[in-house]
Design a protein around this nucleic acid. Structure first.
Lengths: 177, 177
DNA sequence: TTGAATTGTGTGGTCTGACCACTTGAAGGA
DNA sequence: TCCTTCAAGTGGTCAGACCACACAATTCAA
């Protein structure tokens, strides 16, 4: 007997089954998922373990719980995720630079994506960058940028944006050739 | 009375205090953190709530628990995090494209960072991209790329990498002017 | 009839105590 | 010395009990 005898913890099992349920029932953000007691009953898992799973998912920002009402699927926003991870991950000062670098990378990439959709020359850099990420239609990119940006702090540095835009235009032109 | 009357949940409080303890005691990956019962005692929080916090941190890949031994700080790797998030986040087919786009963006950015450090011309695209992300020295970038890449699946598409490298070189050259 | 107050039910939030399974190391005996 | 045994500590899980809260139905007074 090597291993594989020990079944996955109820905690993980609960997460998996909850996920499956969400998928099977085609639940969308905002929808309500069964109560803790009901889940405990249906999955034959103690309420404690169900709660551990739900709390974990909540910390990930995937669900939202409202006392007296229930538990709801959440839109992947307003996550406490990264500030949290950041606390663990970043200690020194180097981290701050990393953060800004990644942010810049995402923004440059965002512009590059837009370059493939429309003419960059027509893009106005008036509002926040958030609008631009939205225009890409790439939800994942948008989400990651929001996460990073939220943690990095907003900087209305228009000069930097102009430089980014310039770089992006170069990419665009090079693709045209 | 507007609000702010309701104290943060014990669950979140536990997470916060555990974090603080880790920071205060200068705990490093591999170190052992106090047992659940001890935490429950020290923080004056029921063991259930402590467990909810620990399970959440475990799902994030921040800690590791070994039955009979204890709970240990973990290096931010091998996280189950994103396959999980992905299951929630991605439904349609559009998501797959998003994923690859973001991956490409990160890789382009990675090259751009390297362009600021060394000569891109000397970079060899032999091994996996993982090496390159490591060379940037940007842990965050590395981590995010690993997450995305892990979920997007590895593709040894050298042709695409060459194109990326070309774009990166352009950026580099434009900066030199 | 209408409106406000009450109550009931369902929900998440938390604690406690009790087991079980497992690891470790110390105590004991061969 | 070496092996066995066992006690203590740890995470894993469960059941039950409350509490705080939200909501809807009900009740009762105006």
């Amino acid at each position: 007997m090597t291993d594989s005898l020990r079944p996955p913890s109820k905690f993980l099992a609960a997460i998996a089954q909850i996920q499956e349920m969400i998928k099977r029932d085609r639940l969308r953000p905002g929808d309500k998922i069964p109560s803790e007691r009901e889940l405990s009953d249906k999955l034959s898992i103690g309420r404690s373990s169900v709660r551990e799973a739900l709390r974990a998912l909540e910390l990930l920002g995937l669900i939202e719980t409202r006392r007296g009402e229930g538990t709801f699927l959440r839109d992947f926003k307003d996550h406490q995720l990264v500030p949290l991870i950041g606390t663990f991950l970043f200690d020194g000062d180097q981290a701050k630079e990393d953060l800004h670098d990644v942010k810049a990378i995402l923004e440059l990439g965002c512009l590059a994506v837009l370059a493939g959709k429309a003419d960059l020359d027509s893009i106005e850099l008036t509002g926040s960058f958030e609008e631009l990420t939205g225009k890409t239609g790439n939800r994942l990119l948008q989400n990651i940028w929001m996460i990073i940006s939220n943690y990095a702090g907003r900087d209305p540095d228009h000069e930097r944006l102009q430089k980014l835009l310039a770089s992006a235009r170069q990419i665009q032109y090079s693709k045209r050739q």
